[in-house]
Design a protein around this nucleic acid. Structure first.
Length: 438
DNA sequence: GTTGAGCGTT
């Protein structure tokens, strides 16, 4: 039985009632049906007097303290609508949305492990279940016409691509993998979802930051290094939100914080342009290399679909929220990047900022093992990288990760699903560096 | 006609 929640565009506006779902959540789509362009909900906390953000995950708004009270909730709009002196025209909201969709373009996907006999028609038939296909190719020997056992596909919409890449595929009796090709063609722009928040003060909690930044877009993670170091990382679901905030100063809890891009900093000064390129595929590489492919193909019908848990994470809103799971396969450029990082140049931090503190300590053995203490640069916290991700999996899988052979970075995914991520069993094995953004 | 980690004749 659904319940009605009072919402208004502004605290002083006349509220309107919108229905919740049976599970008690309020669909963002329900909200935005009445308030086009809405991206969240907040309310004033009578105790503190400040606004409090409502938790949003997978398009659902969750009642605070488990229940929607009779208070008035205020609709949150993307900052583009508010801050630029929104005139309230709906077309602007539409534009914002359209733009976001365009940002996440599809790329060609390689399909590995095809049966020799599979034709392009077979592929098309199979992959159509995920969405419209713009292209299907099976690579063949030009002379014999024999399939080489791999091919390429391209979807017309990004959601299809995400969905397709999040699982393995049984095609004509063989398990096949779909990944982002190594080649740079079709490489998408790396869009970092994480921002660096400098000049933090000590009594800013992760919740404070989350609540504050939620008004600009869904926050999927907040990471505050401990001990206190006067900065934090905030990860948004939408990279565009993150980018739009960069360079700005915001007042939080009376302090002026500075927001800048949290990007891998100086990780190869000697060879910058080159080492950067392959990694520009960024998160695509990230989940392009699926966890299950890490364990080796072994037999032909190797393992059960570990991707099932990922399937549940699929965003229905184009957000990349939980997609940072995945093992990362060896890639020369990543090795270079990893080596550079281990040599002390690496780390995430504000672009263009000089390292603070003692210079090149990261490689001193701390990198693989101890996390926060070792690095001099913000978020040089390898344990953070796989710590949170791997926490749901067996200890053994991350056991070898402490050998400096593995690099993980980035803050934890606070919104990882409760079930953890059993699919990441391959982390850090076989001395393979892994790297990825989240 | 064989093969099974990889990366795309245009």
């Amino acid at each position: 039985m659904s319940h009605y929640i009072q919402v208004a565009e502004d605290e002083d506006d006349e509220p309107m009632e919108v229905p919740s779902e049976d599970d008690g959540t309020l669909l963002l789509s329900t909200l935005s049906a009445q308030f086009p362009g809405a991206c969240g909900l907040k309310y004033r906390n009578p105790e503190s007097g400040s606004m409090r953000g409502i938790r949003l995950s997978d398009g659902r708004l969750y009642p605070p303290d488990g229940e929607w009270s009779s208070r008035i909730y205020v609709v949150v709009f993307p900052k583009e609508n508010k801050r630029k002196g929104d005139d309230g025209s709906g077309s602007e909201n539409l534009l914002v949305k359209t733009k976001r969709i365009e940002k996440l373009k599809c790329s060609d996907l390689i399909v590995l492990g095809l049966p020799w006999k599979s034709s392009e028609e077979d592929l098309r038939k199979y992959f159509s279940q995920f969405g419209d296909l713009l292209m299907v190719q099976v690579k063949k020997d030009p002379k014999t016409g024999q399939s080489k056992g791999f091919g390429f596909i391209r979807f017309s919409d990004y959601e299809s691509q995400i969905k397709c890449m999040s699982q393995r595929h049984m095609i004509d009796g063989r398990w096949c993998d779909v990944r982002i090709p190594n080649s740079k063609e079709g490489a998408q722009q790396m869009m970092n979802r994480k921002v660096f928040v400098g000049r933090c003060i000590e009594d800013m909690t992760a919740d404070d930051l989350r609540n504050y930044f939620n008004k600009f877009g869904e926050v999927v993670d907040v990471f505050i290094p401990k001990p206190f170091r006067a900065f934090a990382f905030v990860t948004f679901a939408d990279p565009e939100v993150a980018q739009s905030l960069c360079g700005e100063d915001h007042i939080i809890k009376g302090a002026s914080v500075h927001i800048s891009s949290a990007a891998p900093k100086n990780y190869d000064k000697h060879n910058d342009k080159k080492s950067m390129l392959p990694n520009q595929q960024g998160y695509n590489q990230g989940y392009g290399q699926t966890p299950w492919s890490q364990g080796g193909r072994g037999g032909t019908h190797a393992i059960a679909n570990q991707g099932s848990t990922m399937g549940g994470n699929l965003p229905n809103n184009l957000g990349l929220g939980n997609l940072s799971l995945g093992a990362f396969q060896l890639n020369p450029a990543m090795i270079a990047a990893a080596q550079a990082m281990l040599s002390g140049q690496g780390g995430w931090g504000p672009i263009g900022l000089v390292s603070q503190g003692g210079a090149t300590t990261a490689g001193g053995g701390g990198a693989g093992g101890t996390g926060a203490g070792g690095g001099d640069t913000p978020a040089q916290t390898p344990t953070q990288g796989f710590g949170s991700i791997g926490s749901g999996s067996q200890a053994g899988s991350t056991g070898s990760a402490g050998t400096n052979s593995f690099l993980g970075w980035g803050a934890s995914q606070g919104s990882d699903p409760p079930g953890g991520s059993p699919g990441v069993g391959g982390w850090g094995t076989q001395n393979k560096p892994g790297a990825g953004w989240n």
